[in-house]
């Protein structure tokens, strides 16, 4: 089987280091490594994005609960509190949650009973501040709302979503570590492969050496082949990764909006995925060059 992109190497250099003895499985190993690296990178980017978006959004949001047992009083208080919030400095948006929607939230636990008028559900108001409010700000807002209703309670989203954001950040670091380990493993694969190829072609290299070939000339024979193998592997890995990510994306989009809704891939993420195979090809090339030059230093 001819090595991928063989046309990019001058014919006489191809003859010196025949493809069949070197690249063969190398490009497919690179494809697998790149596929896994890209999946890890995609996970890291998506989770990082989710953690950032989640923490940014959550830090500025709070929910106001009105717990008055009387439904009519609760509805009136909800309206008055919403009005008061809209006039409060630093509040960007106020969303009154209809009672039907509140009941829908408890439906998974209570079933049809959730719609029973005898079961009191708190009146909810979502508040978004123009900047993340401090604890003191929230306390101040709560005190001013108490003038309308003594049963009012205000909860910052950040407090109950913090474990989720923390989990996302941990998973992000884990995915990033996996990606870095895979890059290291890819470099190690290149070193082993080049050392093997150097052993196979030691006689050729020694003969060239005796004829005045420089170390750089010898290294070039290997580094170019490795870079092209890595580039081919990168392209195959990228296509496979895009396919898998597209399938996963379609599964995620079928989910109800919720905690994972933010775990999408931003545009810069897709661009980064395209850049990674090129970066890995460059890394592989430099690793091959370093390996050959280090080995050749041992002969005079």
């Amino acid at each position: 089987m001819a090595a991928p992109f063989a046309f990019a190497i001058p014919a006489h250099d191809r003859k010196l280091i025949p493809d069949g003895r070197f690249s063969g499985t190398m490009s497919w190993v690179m494809a697998i490594m790149l596929f896994l690296t890209l999946l890890a990178a995609a996970a890291a980017i998506s989770l990082g994005n989710a953690a950032n978006q989640g923490s940014d959004t959550l830090a500025s949001e709070a929910t106001v609960q009105l717990l008055d047992p009387d439904p009519a009083a609760r509805a009136a208080q909800q309206k008055a509190v919403a009005e008061l919030l809209r006039r409060t400095q630093g509040v960007e948006a106020v969303t009154v949650i209809p009672e039907a929607q509140s009941r829908k939230l408890i439906e998974p636990w209570l079933g049809e009973a959730a719609n029973d008028a005898d079961i009191p559900v708190p009146a909810l108001i979502d508040v978004r501040f123009d900047s993340p409010p401090t604890v003191a700000t929230l306390r101040q807002v709560q005190q001013s709302l108490r003038r309308v209703s003594q049963s009012v309670r205000i909860d910052s989203h950040a407090s109950w979503m913090e474990p989720f954001v923390s989990l996302m950040q941990t998973l992000f670091l884990l995915a990033l570590s996996v990606m870095l380990l895979l890059l290291l493993a890819t470099a190690a694969t290149v070193v082993l492969s080049v050392r093997g190829a150097l052993n196979t072609h030691r006689t050729t290299i020694e003969i060239m050496h005796m004829m005045g070939s420089t170390d750089i000339q010898a290294a070039r024979l290997f580094q170019r082949r490795v870079a092209l193998d890595a580039l081919f592997g990168g392209m195959v890995g990228l296509l496979a990764a895009i396919l898998v990510l597209w399938l996963l994306g379609s599964r995620f989009s079928a989910l109800e909006p919720g905690l994972l809704a933010d775990a999408g891939m931003p545009l810069y993420g897709w661009l980064l995925l395209v850049v990674i195979p090129v970066g890995v090809a460059a890394l592989a090339m430099l690793t091959a060059r370093w390996t050959v030059l280090s080995a050749l230093k041992k002969i005079i």
């Binding site: 003859k15 050496h209 005045g212 070939s213 170390d215």
Partner: peptide
């Protein structure tokens, strides 16, 4: 080491065991 290749190019060598590149 880096200066040796330039000198080696000025020297022609016929090896006892020929040392031809087998796949060329």
């Amino acid at each position: 080491r880096d200066r040796l290749p330039g000198f080696r190019r000025r020297i022609g060598v016929v090896f006892q065991d020929f040392r031809l590149v087998p796949h060329l």
